[in-house]
């Protein structure tokens, strides 16, 4: 088979017709539009502060080349210098006064060459400005923000799994008066947009003394109608005979839930766990209201506060944005199948 034929063959063995070409063209444009902006963000986050202010921007991160000069502490920036004899040479700058820059050849450090700044241009090389990331560690309480985000995400997800699976267990495995009513009541909370109860929820949180506490973000989030619904639907497929067998085996109701139903609902729990991690990691409006003190900020809040500063330090902001989207991206890359299946089956996000 010729390579062209191989590349253009479709799933059913026909070769491509014009509609197929249109489809792939559409998808390729989509790929560029959907991934392009994110890739641009990532590429930009590796540029130096100086490179970020360039216009037009370079596609890939470039930085000015620097070399060590004997007798100097730091590496010095390299310029392509037009020498008086008409030749050009790449030489590091040792100092600059006004329009006159002093260069030196590292091979002959005793010899200084003075040139006008207009007679030279910087030498650039491909360089990843990893300092944008490494500097973050000590800056801006970045570690605190990261910890806050991780703490909220992990604790809220664990509690979500526990509470929602308990409710789903009750709603799927017991017959009791009011079961349908409770289920509808829980589902009805899907209809209540968080924006509407913003003000009174603020009151409730402050009355409970949870203002400016990470728990103030966690508690309201751990009962989700989506989670209850998803888990209940799954638990309905677990045969009741298993529970009866366990009851005959002297298992308490809690043990039936913990040892039989929970392990068997693992696939649905995994889907909910992925969702919950995404929700909590990305939360913005609610933490914005509960957490007003800088040391309680999550990454999302810190990003927002940081971008609103008068002088935006884009190099750090971009690096922080990349770190913020990293976990979600990793989760997505590995668990795409579960996420898309979960959404397709539950119809909720």
């Amino acid at each position: 088979m010729s390579p062209i034929k191989f590349l253009t063959r479709t799933r059913n063995g026909r070769s491509l017709d014009w509609t197929d070409w249109m489809s792939y063209a559409y998808l390729t444009v989509g790929l560029f539009l959907m991934f392009g902006p994110v890739l641009w963000l990532v590429a930009s986050s590796f540029k130096t502060e100086a490179a970020l202010t360039e216009f037009p921007p370079s596609l890939l991160p470039y930085g000015q080349k620097a070399v060590a000069v004997p007798g100097e502490e730091k590496p010095k920036p390299v310029y392509r210098v037009k020498l008086p004899d008409g030749t050009t040479k790449e030489l590091p700058e040792v100092r600059r006064i006004g329009l006159v820059a002093t260069h030196v050849d590292p091979a002959k450090p005793e010899e200084f060459i003075r040139v006008n700044v207009n007679d030279r241009e910087p030498v650039r090389e491909f360089r990843l400005a990893t300092e944008n990331y490494t500097d973050l560690a000590g800056k801006l309480k970045f570690g605190t923000y990261l910890w806050n985000s991780v703490f909220i995400t992990v604790v809220a997800t664990l509690l979500t799994l526990l509470f929602n699976s308990m409710a789903a267990f009750a709603l799927s495995k017991y017959k009791f008066a009011g079961r349908k009513g409770v289920f509808l009541l829980i589902l009805s909370t899907l209809m209540v947009p968080p924006a509407i109860v913003l003000v009174p929820n603020f009151l409730v949180i402050s009355e409970l003394g949870l203002l400016n506490s990470l728990w103030g973000v966690i508690w309201p989030a751990v009962a989700t109608p989506t989670g209850v619904f998803l888990l209940r639907q799954y638990m309905l497929t677990i045969p009741d005979e298993l529970l009866e067998a366990a009851r005959m085996d002297h298992a308490s109701e809690w043990k039936i839930y913990w040892r039989i139903v929970l392990p068997l609902a693992a696939p649905a729990l995994a889907v909910l766990a992925i969702f919950s991690v995404m929700w909590r990691w990305n939360d913005f409006l609610w933490p914005l209201i509960v957490l007003s003190k800088n040391e309680h900020f999550t990454l999302q809040l810190a990003l927002n506060a940081f971008q609103g500063d008068l002088v935006t330090q884009w190099n750090y902001l971009l690096a922080m944005t990349v770190i913020t989207l990293l976990p979600v991206t990793i989760v997505f890359a590995f668990l795409q199948k579960y996420i898309t299946q979960g959404i397709a089956s539950a119809g909720v996000k």
């Binding site: 902006p37 994110v38 990691w281 990305n282 913005f284 944005t321 913020t324 997505f332 898309t340």
Partner: peptide, 17 residues
């Protein structure tokens, strides 16, 4: 996955991008 990926990004990240 290409089309779905942005759905998972936080609103703050989307806005900053």
């Amino acid at each position: 996955g290409v089309y779905f990926y942005p759905v998972l990004l936080s609103p703050v990240v989307v806005a900053l991008i």
